[in-house]
């Protein structure tokens, strides 16, 4: 099979059931920020939920961008390694260079309804499919970033596709 370059997307959902410390911090801080920012939009209206706001208030979709700075510090703490997703020897291995925060649901008067997603994007070379596993290596930009063909050895990872993981872009390698 020809190696292809894929963009792997992990959509990490965080809600009131979060148990990991990082997830809890993101949950708490993004909720407080949502509550603060939503008060710029809902004045004079009875709307308190994110769904009501984006349905009824012009420009309320800006809330996503306005809430994002509440979690960038936590994304930074990950040091470019995607959380949760493990290779077949139980280690985190995915490097990400871009992320996208999303508000899924929320209500400024009801924290239990707050639910957010953080999408992590990783560029990988997909070499083979072994059983249920993908054999991949990190894809780096730049002319000398990849090993030359005669080196014929590349560090790879074996991992399984799982819920909330998506291949969101693909191209043939050069």
């Amino acid at each position: 099979m020809t190696a292809r370059i894929i963009t792997l997307q992990y959509r990490k959902i965080i809600d009131v059931n979060a148990i990991k410390q990082w997830d809890k911090l993101v949950f708490e801080d993004s909720f407080v920020e949502f509550k603060m920012q939503a008060q710029n939009f809902n004045r004079g209206t009875p709307f308190s939920s994110y769904a009501e706001l984006i349905r009824n208030i012009p420009h309320a979709e800006r809330l996503t961008g306005l809430v994002t700075p509440s979690i960038t510090g936590y994304v930074q703490q990950l040091d470019s390694i995607v959380p949760d997703i493990l290779n077949n020897i139980g280690r985190r291995f995915l490097k990400f260079n871009q992320f996208k925060f999303e508000l899924i649901n929320s209500d400024m008067n009801d924290k239990s309804k707050h639910q957010v997603g953080i999408n992590f994007y990783s560029n990988l070379i997909w070499h083979e499919t072994v059983g249920n596993y993908l054999l991949v290596s990190n894809y780096h930009h730049g002319p000398d970033a990849q090993l030359k063909p005669q080196d014929n050895e590349l560090l790879t990872h074996l991992f399984q596709l799982q819920p909330y993981l998506n291949i969101c872009a693909i191209k043939n390698s050069i």
Partner: peptide, 9 residues
């Protein structure tokens, strides 16, 4: 090991 909202990661 997938979902951040899972209670059994």
């Amino acid at each position: 090991s997938s979902s951040g909202s899972s209670t059994c990661s």
